[in-house]
């Protein structure tokens, strides 16, 4: 229940259990349901050459890291209250050459 409602009314999130009595927005993962998120990541720097926009690759080889964190108090730098649940790493490449 990531965004509980303060006293079950209005647009404010409840701070603690003593204030929570509803839901403003539910973003939890529900049982036996799959949530899909897609990310498009630009891999370029942009410049103008002869009045044309040119997008140059920042590199050709990349490492993609995807981490799933449990952050009950919302902070990664809180060692007692932050746990990385899953990590995925993959090397991806842009082909060199061609047009």
């Amino acid at each position: 229940m990531p965004i509980p409602q303060q006293f079950g009314r209005g647009d404010k999130m409840g701070r603690g259990p003593y204030e929570k009595s509803g839901l403003i927005r539910e973003t939890s993962l529900h049982p036996n349901k799959t949530k899909v998120e897609k990310f498009e990541i630009p891999l370029y720097t942009e410049e103008k050459k002869d009045d044309k926009i040119v997008r140059n690759p920042i590199a050709y080889d990349f490492i993609v890291d995807v981490e799933l964190w449990y952050l009950p108090y919302g902070k990664k730098d809180d060692p007692d209250n932050s746990i990385m649940w899953k990590k995925y790493t993959k090397q991806i490449n842009l082909a060199k050459g061609g047009k």
Binding site: P31, F39, R55, L94
Partner: peptide, 21 residues
């Protein structure tokens, strides 16, 4: 304009018997 990009697709499936968190 040729535009270098990466596509990342993440699928999360909750196998517990309740919402998380």
């Amino acid at each position: 304009t040729p535009t270098p990009a990466a596509h990342v697709k993440v699928e999360l499936t909750n196998k517990a018997g309740h919402v998380i968190p």
